[in-house]
């Protein structure tokens, strides 16, 4: 099921942002997120991307990286820099890998905009506001963990 969700999400985002995938036409890219159970082949063809679990098929390039490096790539960090820091392993045609990264970097995901299609503007705005507040405050996962720990160890001091 996760492959279908990934396939639909990728194709949807490329379509919405009118990103031309033709430069990758005919390419097979093995992609592995090493800290998550995600090992897939992206088969780029016929102006769309198929996500398959059949990773024994021959690929043009193998890309292995951790989630944090993947997020850094999407946020615009250069592939060359990550390669230099050994945060990404690439075997095969590096030009194909760079093309994929270029395409992914063109995606600008507007969470509120997407959510509003299903919930309406008002709800999407409120959710977006909560998320922004959550992001900007010190409510990172570490500080939440700290607060929970403090609450368990010394509930009186928590207030």
């Amino acid at each position: 099921m996760k492959y279908i969700i990934l396939q639909r999400a990728l194709n949807y985002l490329f379509e919405v942002h009118q990103i031309d995938t033709q430069l990758l036409d005919g390419k097979v890219i093995y992609f592995s997120l090493q800290d998550l159970p995600i090992k897939v082949n992206f088969v780029c063809t016929n102006e769309r991307i198929f996500v398959t679990n059949n990773t024994d098929a021959t690929s043009d390039v193998n890309i292995k990286l951790h989630l944090s490096s993947f997020l850094a790539l999407i946020r615009g960090q250069s592939l060359a820099e990550l390669l230099r820091q050994d945060k990404i392993i690439i075997h095969g045609d590096i030009k194909t890998a760079q093309l994929l990264v270029d395409l992914l970097q063109q995606i600008e995901f507007d969470f509120e905009e997407e959510l509003s299609k299903y919930t309406g503007d008002a709800v999407a705005y409120k959710v977006g506001k909560i998320m922004k507040k959550f992001k900007s405050s010190d409510n990172s996962s570490t500080s939440i963990k700290d607060k929970i720990t403090k609450f368990i160890i010394a509930p009186k001091l928590f207030h």
């Binding site: 005919g26 063809t45 398959t52 679990n53």
Partner: peptide
């Protein structure tokens, strides 16, 4: 060029997906 299958209902049914690369 590529083919994969998904077992459904424990393999009672399977969906084969082939892509002409």
């Amino acid at each position: 060029g590529a083919c994969e299958y998904h077992n459904l209902s424990g393999g009672i049914v399977a969906l084969h997906k082939g892509i002409k690369i």
